[in-house]
């Protein structure tokens, strides 16, 4: 979307939000789920998006801001088309997660937390994903990939790059 366009939820989303709010004793309870929706719809939570969410739920901007900044899944900056989140906590570390992160960063020519210049891939480290029997675990756009090794990641990156070029 262009810089000037103000982000707005669709009518269908607003209806979904009204139904959601009705399931709680108070509208503020719907804040986390609505921020998830906003991130899905708008890619990330810009200040304008946060203002819109505050307006829709009847909250103050600071009530929204303190939640956005507290929870790690909420992003205030855009990320790549493929957000690759590698768990590097104990069990994944014992199964080669650090080496995997290094390989991914070397292959893509970026550092942890950065996005490739073509806007395709972002690599981050995250805390325990709760899937330790499949260590090391990589979440790619919120889908769990388990027992990931270098060959698996190479194949994924190649396939994703090819699909994008097509």
């Amino acid at each position: 979307m262009s810089m000037k366009e103000t982000p707005r939820f669709s009518e269908k989303r607003l209806e979904e939000i009204r139904a959601l709010v009705a399931r709680y004793p108070g509208p503020q309870s719907a804040l986390l789920p609505v921020l998830h929706m906003a991130q899905e719809d708008f890619g990330y939570l810009s200040l304008d998006v946060q203002k819109h969410v505050a307006e829709v739920l009847g909250l103050t901007l600071i009530q929204v801001r303190e939640v956005v900044t507290f929870y790690t899944m909420f992003r205030e900056q855009p990320c790549g088309k493929y957000l690759m989140e590698v768990c590097t906590n104990a069990s994944c570390m014992l199964n080669g997660a650090d080496e995997l992160v290094r390989h991914m960063c070397d292959k893509l020519g970026i550092k942890v937390g950065e996005t490739t210049p073509d806007g395709m891939f972002t690599v981050t480290e995250v805390e325990c994903a709760g899937a330790c029997s499949g260590a090391p675990v990589v979440q790619i756009n919120n889908v769990y990939h388990e027992n990931v090794d270098e060959a698996y990641i190479d194949a994924f990156i190649e396939k994703a790059s090819k699909e994008d070029a097509a």
Binding site: Y24, L32, P33, L35, H36, F70, Y71, T72, M73, F74
Partner: peptide
């Protein structure tokens, strides 16, 4: 009884 699933957002 009503039952609702509520997703957190990444905070141990």
């Amino acid at each position: 009884m009503d039952l609702t699933v509520h997703r957190g957002a990444g905070a141990y």
